Simulated scan of single mutants.
Amino acid sequence: MLLGGFFLGIAGTTFAIGVPFVNSWFPPAKRGMATGLYGVGMGGTAISAFTTVPLVEAAGSAAPFIVTAIALVLYAVLAWLFMHDAPTWKPSGKSMLSQTLLAMRQKVTWQACYLYALSFGGYVAFSVFLPTMLKNWYGLTAADASFRMAGFVIVAVIMRPFGGTLSDRIGAVRTLLISYVAVALAALMLAFQPALMPLGTIDFIVMAAGLGLGSGAVFALVAQAADPSVVGSVTGFVGAAGGLGGFVPPLVMGAIHAARGSYSLGIVLLLIATLGAVVVTLFVGRGARRAAATA
């Protein structure tokens, strides 16, 4: 499992590669939309939810892995043949260590890490843990819970490009504030364990929309606020934070449910983290206004 996770981590790094690649092809005014559309690829989670079990039942437990491996090889061939760097792209003359240290010294790196850990990390955490939560809280069957999770993922995926596009129109900071207010309101309602139909379902949909909107806006923020020469390095840090943000909450939620028999405390912690993201976003906006004033 550790070895498999290592290679999956290498494959996951391609997301960090893709953001500066996409950025280089678009002017700043359209980078939010471009990175938002690029982020629709996270819909692979929904595809796997719909196809993994049928593939296993039809062709055995190895089938999903074989299909994925074939898809990766085909994509690698297509990328080799048709993808190339933008004409304006220039390689960095700095060493990898100095490039990394430069990204670490930028305040926006750590701000975006927190924001993405909440937005994308929250999306990943819910997509992983939601079936268990629905079964334990509402007594759903595994199949019903999985399909509802897939619906959650689809809503988040659809909203991600809207987050990028909206960031181009009204700014990434305002878009993030909208997304976090939506997540906070949904978390506040879910903490009281509402009935699944209709209020609970509406809450989960609002949560998915807010997380998807925020995921698209964070990389728009990076594209707009970070120096173009370190966008790739900053994106790498931010992407790692998103992965970490998706890893920790399911462990916390499982421990809380085992200790208390309810997920409410975990949802309250999400609410607190979201309010923290609102504060960080406000600081980012104030820093951006100061930079614009001194420019």
Score class of each variant (00 low, 15 high):
12 G>M: 04
13 T>W: 12
16 A>P: 07
17 I>M: 14
20 P>M: 01
22 V>W: 01
29 A>W: 03
32 G>E: 06
43 G>Y: 02
44 G>Y: 09
44 G>V: 11
44 G>E: 07
45 T>N: 10
51 T>M: 09
58 A>L: 03
69 A>R: 07
70 I>M: 08
70 I>C: 07
83 M>L: 15
84 H>C: 06
94 K>F: 13
102 L>V: 09
103 A>K: 00
109 T>C: 00
110 W>R: 03
111 Q>S: 05
111 Q>W: 01
114 Y>F: 14
118 L>C: 11
120 F>I: 02
122 G>P: 01
122 G>Q: 02
125 A>I: 04
125 A>C: 08
127 S>R: 02
127 S>C: 10
128 V>T: 12
133 M>Q: 10
136 N>P: 08
137 W>N: 15
141 T>S: 15
141 T>E: 15
143 A>H: 11
146 S>A: 15
146 S>K: 10
150 A>L: 08
156 A>M: 04
156 A>C: 08
156 A>G: 06
162 F>K: 11
164 G>E: 12
165 T>F: 15
168 D>Y: 10
169 R>N: 12
171 G>Q: 07
172 A>L: 06
173 V>R: 03
173 V>A: 05
175 T>K: 11
176 L>H: 10
177 L>N: 10
180 Y>S: 06
180 Y>E: 06
182 A>N: 07
182 A>P: 07
186 A>Q: 13
187 A>G: 13
189 M>Q: 13
193 Q>W: 10
195 A>L: 11
199 L>A: 13
205 I>E: 02
212 G>P: 03
213 L>D: 04
214 G>Y: 02
219 F>K: 00
229 S>F: 01
229 S>E: 02
239 G>E: 01
242 G>D: 08
242 G>P: 09
250 P>C: 03
253 M>P: 07
256 I>W: 11
264 S>A: 15
264 S>R: 06
264 S>I: 06
265 L>R: 09
266 G>D: 04
278 V>A: 12
278 V>C: 13
282 L>E: 09
289 R>I: 03
291 A>R: 10
295 A>W: 11
